[in-house]
Design a protein around this nucleic acid. Structure first.
Length: 458
DNA sequence: ATTATGAGCACTGTGAGACC
DNA sequence: GGTCTCACAGTGCTCATAAT
């Protein structure tokens, strides 16, 4: 019949010794009247409205105040529409010696001579009980969240996902408020708070997007096939793109509408960066591995071609672009491999140049596009494209064809690097994410900024 | 008393289908 | 690729509450 909606809920009451004694007296009377089946320190039931008072224990260590922990199971009927009638049915009115009717409260021990007063009082306890249920549920959820890592937090609820905070690496359900309260001293937050509410909200929304973006980068670092986090879950496995203005991840179709809102009144050109540039970062197709990567020889250049991320990325994009030319597969393959080897060669010369002046360990061919090494790159290109001294020291000859080819490969690489940078190392995120890192790599930031300006101007 | 956070509610903006 | 429309996931705001 009735369902115990609060079954297992723990409610704690602080009662005085007197109240406890009264309460015990009340239950004792209920026992005598047959409405309670048993009464010990662990009370199991009182009547049909408050069926069970179980696991009752007292801490008699303190003087006047007695802490009572009671587990209450409440009949659903008292929480529903008919709770009034149920309560009326269970007032358990007790008569005293002079015939006055008293209505003692089973929870707090108060006595009422007026039925309505008693019912109002019980309503108050019902509210407390309901709140107690919510609090218990909330505490449980909170504990669960605290013990879980980031990805599982989002799965906890289907409604509001916790968002990644770029300032403290925590996940918060109300990120904007959290940032406003906890990170109000951050420069970017200070700046955002100075704007109008509309602009401020937009800037806080940007913090959220950056958090999502950073989280996705981390996920991709661990697993290139990881399911990416986004603002809204797509029910369909649609093509995803990223807005190069705000880093929002959207479906390709939603981009045109997003462009209008994101652009606002600005004349700035907003582009969608295709998924190939950021979703599957280092992921190269099987055909690329089979037809290109496995074909390189085991010399130094071949090793660079097979291992360097930038060289691989350039190669895979060139391969993906031309693989539709099925009848020219062999030519395309040779062309891609040549471009990759040219890039690797250039990097090899570049490394030699850099080693002369800077005892730095270069990690990737992408360092060639670092503006502080621009002169080294120039030197490397010259050395790579000049014939050498076979015609005598005074008659250096230039390999024009190679230099042109190298120019286009470097240009292509720069475009790819830019796309990668916009998607993976957003300047704004980068600045905020790691100031220390930024100090070390401030030259890269300037380089990317200048490169972007140059490319925008073209 | 203050701060930080969760729940509930009303509203906004995105996803997706249809159509051009 | 753009526009329209509908459904609904997710947001901000307010209130309540736990933690300090």
């Amino acid at each position: 019949m009735a369902e115990n909606v609060l079954s297992g809920t723990t409610l704690e009451f602080d009662m005085s010794q007197k109240d406890l004694n009264d309460f015990r007296m009340y239950v004792g009377k209920c026992l005598l009247s047959g409405k309670v089946s048993s009464f010990q320190e662990d009370i199991t039931s009182i009547d049909s409205s408050m069926e069970q008072f179980g696991e009752m224990s007292t801490d008699t260590g303190s003087s006047e105040d007695v802490h009572i922990q009671t587990v209450i199971s409440v009949d659903k009927s008292i929480c529903d529409d008919d709770e009034q009638s149920t309560l009326e049915d269970n007032t358990s009115a007790l008569g005293d010696n002079v015939g006055n009717v008293r209505y003692p409260c089973a929870i707090c021990g108060n006595e009422f001579t007026d039925l309505q007063d008693f019912l109002d009082h019980m309503q108050k306890h019902l509210k407390e009980i309901k709140k107690g249920k919510k609090a218990a549920a909330s505490t449980t959820l909170c504990n669960k969240k605290n013990s879980k890592d980031t990805s599982t937090v989002n799965n906890q609820s289907n409604t509001k996902p916790a968002r990644y905070c770029i300032f403290c690496d925590k996940y918060c359900l109300q990120l904007s408020r959290h940032i406003q309260l906890v990170h109000k001293e951050e420069d970017r937050v200070k700046a955002a708070l100075k704007f109008s509410p509309r602009t401020k909200n937009k800037m806080f929304s940007q913090f959220k997007k950056e958090g999502i973006h950073l989280n996705n980068i981390e996920k991709l670092g661990k697993d290139s096939h990881a399911v990416l986090e986004r603002e809204r879950i797509s029910q369909k496995d649609s093509v995803q793109v990223m807005c190069d203005n705000c880093n929002a991840i959207l479906t390709k179709k939603a981009m045109s509408r997003h462009r209008a809102t994101c652009q606002g009144g600005s004349s700035k050109q907003i582009n969608a960066i295709p998924a190939q540039f950021f979703i599957k970062d280092n992921d190269v197709s099987e055909s690329f591995v089979k037809n290109i990567l496995t074909k390189f020889t085991k010399d130094d250049i071949g090793k660079i071609c097979k291992s360097d991320n930038l060289v691989k990325k350039v190669g895979s994009i060139l391969w993906a672009k031309n693989r539709t030319k099925v009848d020219q597969l062999s030519q395309v393959r040779k062309s891609v491999m040549n471009d990759m080897r040219r890039l690797a060669h250039a990097y090899n010369f570049f490394k030699e140049e850099v080693k002369k002046d800077h005892p730095l360990l270069l990690n990737t061919a992408a360092d060639m596009f670092n503006r502080i090494f621009f002169k080294d790159l120039q030197e490397a290109v010259c050395k790579y494209t000049e014939v050498g001294d076979q015609y005598g020291k005074t008659s250096f000859k230039l390999k024009h064809g190679l230099k042109y080819a190298l120019y286009y490969v470097l240009k292509k690489s720069a475009e790819i690097l830019r796309a990668e940078h916009l998607s993976k190392f957003s300047i704004r995120v980068w600045i905020q994410k790691s100031k220390e890192n930024l100090q070390k790599k401030s030259y890269l930031y300037k380089f990317y900024r200048d490169l972007k300006l140059c490319l925008d101007a073209v």
